[in-house]
């Protein structure tokens, strides 16, 4: 351990003694040219690749090339200042162990924060659900994530927990599906109901044309025929569409004379039912009153 520390200190003193105008200039030049090259190569690779492979693979390939070039650039800069890469890695490892033992929770939150920054499962303003805590992300700091729940409550979650939690980000995708269930009476024509619902979807500006909405019979229920409506909306407008569509469909079905059934039971008796009816005589009632 002492040997490693000695090697790090030697490297550091070598670096400071190696800082000359020429080397700083060379390092800046390598930095600028290297990053420009990395950027250009990433774009060129992406543009060439996305025509022949799926988009996510094209992104992965171009990203890999970018980071390879960035690492080469960083190593070149370090070598300009005479830094031994092995020494830096060893020093980093030792420092990590010391810090880890000294402040395990803080470090694990900190590392989780760094990984969250890298992984980017959400950003401030995103509607999320982090293991049962649902709301809008207010802030992602290096140690914790702050969420304002739907009912306005402030919740601070340590990054360590966020990192290992199941995260649902409702705003990550550009579109989100709205699913509604509507029942019509058994006597009604499904074709007609489907036409009415399709018209409602078509009239709503925020129901997307593509992906196409789907309307189908999903269940022959005890009270009526259940129709499922699946329509896509821009993610930011999902709640508006969800709120408006159901009532619009109800109104349109009622206007078209299509019955929406309420829960009911028809009771059949195996044998004729004997019912005894007693009537009170008017005279008796009169005498009581």
């Amino acid at each position: 351990m002492i040997e490693s520390l000695k090697s790090v200190l030697e490297s550091a003193s070598r670096v400071f003694s190696a800082v000359t105008f020429d080397r700083v200039f060379s390092a800046l030049l390598v930095f600028a040219v290297g990053f420009a090259l990395a950027y250009v190569f990433r774009r060129l690779t992406f543009r060439a690749a996305y025509k022949v492979v799926p988009l996510h693979i094209a992104k992965a390939i171009s990203g890999f090339i970018y980071y390879v070039i960035v690492i080469i650039v960083m190593m070149t800069i370090l070598s300009i200042f005479g830094v031994s890469i092995t020494g830096v890695l060893v020093a980093g490892g030792i420092a990590g162990i010391v810090l880890g033992f000294a402040s395990q929770t803080i470090v694990s939150n900190l590392l989780a924060g760094i990984f969250l920054y890298w992984d980017k499962p959400f950003k401030p303003g995103d509607p999320v659900n982090v293991e049962g805590i649902a709301g809008i992300v207010q802030e992602i700091s290096i140690l914790s994530t702050r969420i304002q729940t739907w009912d306005g409550v402030y919740v601070r979650i340590p990054n360590e927990k966020v990192f290992t939690a199941t995260i649902t980000n409702y705003a990550r995708m550009p579109v989100r599906r709205v699913e509604l269930k509507v029942s019509i009476a058994y006597k009604e024509d499904f074709g007609k109901a489907k036409e009415v619902i399709a018209r409602v979807l078509d009239e709503h500006p925020l129901v997307l044309v593509q992906p196409e909405p789907v309307i189908f019979t999903s269940e022959l229920g005890s009270d009526g025929v259940e129709i499922t409506v699946q329509a896509w909306a821009p993610t930011s407008e999902w709640i508006t569409v969800k709120r408006e569509l159901l009532w619009n469909i109800k109104k349109a079905l009622t206007e078209a004379g299509i019955e929406i059934p309420f829960p009911q039971r028809d009771i059949w008796f195996r044998t004729p039912l004997k019912v005894e009816v007693t009537t009170k005589s008017t005279s008796k009632l009169d005498s009581i009153s």
């Binding site: 550009p174 579109v175 078509d202 500006p205 129901v207 044309v209 593509q210």
Partner: peptide, 17 residues
């Protein structure tokens, strides 16, 4: 007024249709 998604559901863009 109608909108549509151009592209896949995970990366496409919303466009006036």
């Amino acid at each position: 007024v109608k909108y549509a998604l151009y592209g896949p559901k995970d990366e496409g863009i919303i466009a006036r249709y």
